[in-house]
């Protein structure tokens, strides 16, 4: 073999070696910290994943991990492919036996499982990780985290970039609004009693990013708000969520028919809107759809062209 062909072979070999390296899966994520501040060691890239929340399911499918999802909850109705997956129980009621039988190497839980399903699964040697975002930024961080754990870093950064662009398109126009340019918003998830979304909820973050101000500023979490407080704070628009899964718009109908609300600005100007609860309450990629819809409700003059 002459010098030339030997060099050729060497080049070919090194190219082959490089190709080989790049087509092999990336290294596992190692130690990661979840939203309950627990450090979890991911020493292998998970291949069988169970989601314990609709939001987690939507993140997994959006990252192209649908094939690796082996179990979801009864409430996971998006995307369509998720409906056909085996069910491991409701939202707070997890069938641990079913989870174990599906032999997952990763369970994506939420904070409501912190005292129940997570310790139960860990005792059985199953890796469980909780996602509990309280703002749009944290949803984006969660998507990045799931991408990192599952070896889908590239898909995750693409998704976060495109969602970030859409968020920025709205935030850039609303962030400098003066308080008096921010309409007072009442958000309702239920009507008897009136349940609203106060501070430390995703909805609250969406309302403020969409250029409104939440009239439930002194209530934290999802709680009842007094009818007289609503009337006194006089919302300029009311947004009612459509029941999760049922498609029922009871809170919206209530608002439209409640005589005691008819003198609020929202009713006088006929600004009572509906939003799909599946968009507004799920900490997944579609939360940005909710942001865009709310921005149009709150500032129709600024966001006519979206959609």
């Amino acid at each position: 073999m002459n010098q030339y062909s030997r060099n050729c072979l060497l080049v070919l070999l090194s190219v082959a070696l490089l190709l080989c390296l790049s087509c092999a899966s990336p290294p596992p994520a190692g130690n990661v910290v979840d939203d309950l501040d627990r450090t979890i060691n991911i020493d292998e890239i998970p291949q069988r994943i169970i989601s314990l929340a609709p939001s987690n399911t939507e993140i997994l499918f959006a990252l192209g991990l649908g094939d690796r999802v082996v179990g979801v909850t009864e409430y996971c109705n998006f995307p369509e492919a998720a409906i056909a997956k085996p069910k491991v129980g409701g939202f707070s009621t997890v069938d641990i036996e079913k989870v174990v039988s599906l032999e997952p190497d990763l369970v994506l839980a939420t904070q409501i499982h912190s005292k129940t399903a997570i310790p139960a699964l860990e005792k059985l040697g199953i890796t469980a990780l909780a996602l509990a975002p309280g703002s749009l930024d944290e949803v984006m961080n969660n998507i990045t985290l799931v991408g990192k754990i599952t070896g889908q870093d590239k898909q995750a950064s693409q998704l976060v970039n495109s969602l970030g662009t859409r968020i920025e398109a709205i935030a850039s126009r609303t962030q400098n609004l003066a308080p008096d340019q921010r309409p007072r918003v009442l958000y309702l998830t239920w009507h008897d009693p009136l349940i609203t979304a106060g501070t430390e909820t995703l909805v609250d973050d969406i309302i403020s990013k969409a250029g409104g101000q939440n009239i439930a500023y002194d209530i934290s979490g999802h709680k009842a708000i007094a009818l007289e407080t609503v009337i006194h704070r006089d919302p300029q628009l009311i947004i009612a969520s459509i029941g999760m899964g049922t498609g029922e718009d009871l809170p919206w109908q209530y608002v439209k028919n409640e005589p005691r609300l008819k003198n609020t600005e929202a009713l006088l100007n006929d600004r009572v809107y509906k939003i799909d609860g599946d968009l507004a309450h799920r900490a997944g990629p579609r939360i940005v759809d909710a942001l865009e819809q709310m921005a149009q409700f709150i500032h129709p003059e600024l966001f006519e062209e979206i959609n």
């Binding site: 009693p193 106060g198 439930a216 002194d218 209530i219 709680k223 009842a224 708000i225 007094a226 407080t229």
Partner: peptide, 10 residues
């Protein structure tokens, strides 16, 4: 019930 944690109710 309606004032203890106002504006939320229990």
């Amino acid at each position: 019930a309606r004032t203890m944690l106002a504006p939320t109710e229990i």
